[in-house]
């Protein structure tokens, strides 16, 4: 594995939708998922009397006693330790403001630069409009702080960016990174996947980059199929 996303994949494990068959069904807000005192309401659910209800639209899943609803649509909701891809929108006296496609603004403090930077030359390291991969370090009422000091993070040079639906990112990564590693291996591209749906691809030639993008878009289209990694392997054999 020549690429730089190994580091992120470890943290994304929790979000990965497992591909083994599990009892899951689509629920709409207000729908009763299970009845009985034995169950604990988890994320996206609430208890009303004897019932556990969905408080959002998604896939209901029972893991042990905990019932939760997994999001399948909607805007990106930032979480700590998410790797995101954003664009520098402003340079301030003590860092960079980054737009990462969510409600709160994100900030990279100047200390995150790997070498000393003179405050008058901040645009030499990151200029307005540059794309960066960064990790969400902390989230507070005043905004999101990003970190760059990790493998594979930092300014994205060359290659190209495109966007997929943020909720499908776990599928693109796959179980323990299986899907993204397969795509990297078969196309020889460097790929960084942001949890906010932005994906960066850089390869040796334009054909391999386009192939990688096509493969990723296949995965996001076929989200409800199981055993997708095997199917993609077959797809790569055909193309």
């Amino acid at each position: 594995m020549d690429t730089n996303t190994e580091a992120h994949e470890a943290e994304n494990q929790e979000d990965v939708q497992s591909e083994e068959p599990k009892k899951r069904r689509v629920v709409v807000p207000g729908e009763v998922i299970v009845s009985g005192e034995d169950f604990l309401p988890g994320e996206g659910t609430r208890r009303e009397g004897n019932d556990v209800l969905a408080s959002r639209y998604g896939l209901a899943e029972e893991s042990g006693r905990v019932v939760k609803v997994l999001a399948i649509t909607g805007a990106f909701i930032p979480r700590r330790n998410n790797v995101v891809i954003g664009r520098i929108s402003q340079i301030t006296s003590n860092g960079w403001v980054v737009s990462i496609d969510c409600a709160s603004s994100a900030f990279i403090p100047i200390d995150e630069s790997p070498r000393f930077i003179n405050k008058s030359e901040m645009d030499q390291f990151l200029d307005v409009g540059d794309a960066v991969a960064a990790k969400i370090w902390s989230m507070g009422p005043r905004g999101i702080d990003l970190a760059l000091k990790s493998r594979g993070l930092g300014k994205l040079d060359g290659g190209f960016l495109f966007r997929v639906i943020p909720n499908r990112v776990p599928r693109v990564i796959g179980r323990e990174g299986s899907m993204i590693n397969l795509i990297k291996e078969k196309t020889g591209c460097e790929i960084t996947v942001g949890q906010n749906g932005w994906i960066w691809i850089k390869g040796k030639d334009i054909e391999s980059q386009i192939k990688a993008r096509k493969a990723i878009e296949m995965v996001t289209d076929k989200i409800y199929l199981s055993g997708l990694t095997d199917k993609m392997e077959a797809w790569f054999a055909d193309n």
């Binding site: 959002r56 399948i72 649509t73 909607g74």
Partner: peptide, 11 residues
Amino acid sequence: LAHAGIPMKNL
């Protein structure tokens, strides 16, 4: 609103 994943009491 439901499709956007907004937390809702009901439709």
